[in-house]
Design a protein around this nucleic acid. Sequence first.
DNA 1: GGCTGAGGTCGATAGCGTCCACGGACTGTG
DNA 2: CACAGTCCGTGGACGCTATCGACCTCAGCC
Lengths: 151, 151
Amino acid sequence: MDAIDLSLVELLQGNARLSYAELARQVGLSAPAVHERVGKLESSGVIRAYRAEVEPESIGLGVTAVIGLVEDSGADTDDVLEAVRRMPEIDSCYFMAGVESFLLKARVGTIAELEQLIVRLNRTPGVASTRTGVALSTKWENRPQPLGPAS
Amino acid sequence: MDAIDLSLVELLQGNARLSYAELARQVGLSAPAVHERVGKLESSGVIRAYRAEVEPESIGLGVTAVIGLVEDSGADTDDVLEAVRRMPEIDSCYFMAGVESFLLKARVGTIAELEQLIVRLNRTPGVASTRTGVALSTKWENRPQPLGPAS
DNA sequence: GGCTGAGGTCGATAGCGTCCACGGACTGTG
DNA sequence: CACAGTCCGTGGACGCTATCGACCTCAGCC
């Protein structure tokens, strides 16, 4: 990971569809060289994926909620995790310090669907309670990360 | 937004670097047709951007925190928002229902940097208090959204 | 010095992006 | 019904890109 790799990562964070030729021009290398570097960034796991960022409203997902989840004493954390993973509405999942072991971000179409999701979560074995906050609006999300001079 | 547009969005959510030719094969249209459809999805705002998803640790951002922010009574919400926006560590910002007007997700390199960020937030005019939770691990994030039959 | 490996350039070729002219299915109208 | 207009697609063409293989260069090491 040198300075050129960092620039490549930064460029691709900004626009994942840049051509190798364009990347090459920006960093001052040839296209094959860039191709190889990006390939290594991908296979070493620095670049995990390339995703189109979609406006949730336009695909019928207008409601965003954040859910803190408290586990039963004696719950199997892996089982809970697996159950949560199977709910496609849950688009992010963090294991947290604190009473609420998990913090979930969910995206659904309507408040009614959110209600159903919460009920399903509360019924899940190992889940003691949940606490849900509803986002009224998303100001921004997943802003490209500032590239600290890395590892 | 018909079924083909939905497939295109779904395919690009999964891999933003697919070529138009490949997309065309997958949805059974010609490349120029796909090119035009994707162009319209972009300019109508359905597709906001294409981003490389980067492993935060590898660019020196190993600490994820979630911060609830309570505004002063009489604070100017727009000013608070502007101040928060200027902090590049804050990668997501939601305006929430509840006492904590904003929920922020931050990404920093070390706990020391997190401390500085929190101090800066608490010093910001209009901010009454903050409450921070630290993520011990990220199970997953920004999973491709399930494509409900959309608008 | 001479080997070796990493990482670059160059050149070639197949395939892709993108522009354009053209054509069929709907739709509203005389 | 015939007509024109619109929408949305196809196919062809052409320049640019992706990607492979051959070769070059430099650093480290025996």
